[in-house]
Design a protein around this nucleic acid. Structure first.
Length: 506
RNA sequence: GGCCUUAUGGUCAAGGGGUUAAGACGCCACCCUCUCAAGGUGGAAUCACGAGUUCGAAUCUCGUUAAGGCUACCA
């Protein structure tokens, strides 16, 4: 028999990452078994109706590459695939249940809660035929409830949690058909899963407690119940250390939010595939195709998993690094708009620096903060590793300034010039570069080396910043301000230029 | 409260009677290095607790505890 799984979200307007994971697993299981993956929209709660919400679902599935074989947008042999369009079907099946004695009309006021907290008091369970007729004829609003057996036990076997038994007396007479004529989820999912020939129901484990009631429904209809595969919950860590279902307070939890932050769809899918499932190997990076090949119910984990943004970051960084540069450039474009001083003209170069250094695209913003944020902090010039203090840094900058002033600002040029100068002065390149890089960025951490930073800022801005740095250092040291324009090359630099020319001849 | 489920490092997790209890993220140290990142090497860190079964328990059983879910005319 062909395997058929379904993803049955309600259109809430956003895709929770836990829902996406459920969709993923349903998709993987179907495809692993050469089966069909069906999309069904569960919109029976009119109060929750959100305009455009189904589009979010289509879009998410598309971006995540979870292509469904049947659904409202593409049709199929088991439609309609939107529950609100199946209203009459549910009414028909609810009537059948009433006739067979597995359900009954209930005319109770929904606001009367005589037995609070313990389910419905079964007031209407044994109404006489006459009373029911009378109420119906009077047009009294009603609800249809499931007539759960008062004794006995109901058992089902879940593919991951094993056999679960429940005493029927602990089950309540749940509502099947609501006052507005629409079914509850609890009823609709049973009818639809049967009618749509679903062979494996894959859903969150919050439905385990309701499954015995579904089981009873299948039995009442005389239908073969589908196999169930319940999935653990994705949790988030709270500030107080406790754990609860992943929600907004834990960070971005919708697929869209994550995309907006600059996570790659493939990375997200890869990461959540490993939340509650293990491939029984040490491989962690999987393409969707590989996931299909490896997916196995045996690997599904029963305990809840906490969503770890750090590990997502790692996955995302792996995927970002693998991106070819053109793709990276294109994908990062929208994010450089967020820089206070966007660098479209030099992004071709800057993006090569960025690609290996970010976990997610939004990291671009702090990475290039130095372009617009320049606040002198002379303490940054003190660097133990390079044995630099303010005086030494200033001396280097004073020497380097006229050199830079007479140079083309291209990365190769700058690198060549500065490394040659360091060589000439018998100074380690790091020692020379430190004050240069600091003077021009005022950040100890930068997305590239000194020459690269000089290039990004351009000649005018770089020289302006260096001069400002020298002035600040001079002030700190109690020395007079630096006047580069009036200062000719000293003999040291002339000597260097000779040296440079000789070396370039080779 | 009742019912259901779960329990291996901070996190994801392998292991299902005998193991030095994998691996990954994160963390720390070192190497590399003009900073950072990447990369490399190494390190710290786990069987919730208590009984029982057994020659032997992370592994099987029971109990306790903790956590999560259900207990809606939400899904």
């Amino acid at each position: 028999m062909e395997v058929r799984t379904r993803f049955a979200p309600s259109p809430t307007g956003y895709m929770h990452i836990g829902n996406l994971r459920t969709a993923l697993f349903a998709f993987l299981f179907a495809k692993h078994n050469n089966g069909k993956f069906i999309l069904r929209i569960e919109d029976t709660d009119q109060k929750r109706y959100v305009e455009g919400a189904t589009d979010v679902i289509y879009k998410t599935l598309k971006i995540a590459h979870l292509a469904h074989d049947e659904g409202p947008d593409i049709g199929g042999n088991y439609g309609p695939y939107v529950q609100s369009e199946r209203k009459n079907i549910y009414i028909k099946y609810a009537q059948m249940l009433i006739e067979s004695g597995h359900a009954y009309y209930c005319f109770c006021d929904p606001d009367d809660k005589e037995e609070q907290g313990f389910g419905y008091n079964r007031h209407c369970r044994n109404l006489s035929k006459e009373e029911i007729e009378k109420n119906l004829n009077e047009g009294k609003p009603y609800v249809i409830r499931q007539k759960v057996p008062l004794t006995g036990t109901t058992t089902f076997t879940d593919e991951v949690y094993g056999t679960i038994s429940v005493e029927n007396e602990s089950l309540d007479d749940q509502v099947l058909l609501k006052r507005d004529g629409l079914p509850t989820y609890n009823f609709a999912n049973v009818v639809d899963d049967h009618l749509m020939n679903i062979t494996h129901v894959i859903r969150g484990k919050e439905y385990i407690s309701s499954t015995p009631k579904y089981q009873l429904l299948y039995e009442a209809f005389g239908w073969e119940p589908p196999k169930t595969i319940h999935l653990s919950t994705i949790m988030g860590r709270n500030e107080d250390g406790s754990v609860s279902k992943l929600s907004k307070r834990h960070g971005s939890v919708s697929f869209n939010n994550l995309l907006e932050e600059g996570y790659l769809s493939d990375a997200i899918v890869n990461y959540i595939s490993l939340l509650g499932w293990n491939p029984k190997s040490e491989q962690e990076i999987f393409t969707l195709q590989e996931l299909i090949e490896h997916f196995d119910v045996d690997g599904i984990v029963k305990s809840d998993a906490i969503f770890d943004y750090k590990k997502l970051d790692w996955f995302n960084a792996q995927y970002i690094q693998k991106l070819d540069h053109e793709t990276f450039k294109k994908a990062s474009m929208t994010f450089i708009q967020n820089l206070s001083k966007p660098i479209y003209d030099k992004w071709d170069f800057a993006s090569t620096l960025a690609q290996g250094r970010i976990n997610k695209f939004s990291d671009i913003v702090p990475l290039f903060e130095f372009l617009s944020d320049f606040k002198i902090d002379t303490s940054l010039f003190e660097n133990k590793k390079n044995k630099l203090d303010k005086q030494a840094s200033k001396d280097i900058l004073v020497k380097v300034f006229p050199l830079l002033a007479s140079t083309e600002f291209e990365v190769e040029n700058l690198n060549n010039l500065l490394s040659k100068y360091a060589e000439h002065k018998e100074m380690k390149i790091g020692k020379l570069m430190w004050p240069v890089r600091i003077s021009v960025t005022m950040h100890s951490v930068t997305p590239g080396g000194g020459a690269e930073m000089l290039y990004l800022l351009g000649k005018n801005e770089s020289l302006r910043r260096i001069q400002e740095s020298i002035d600040a250092l001079s002030a700190d040291l109690g020395e007079p301000p630096f006047e580069p324009q009036e200062k000719p090359l000293d003999k040291d630099e002339i000597e260097f230029l000779k040296y440079l020319m000789e070396n370039n001849k080779e």
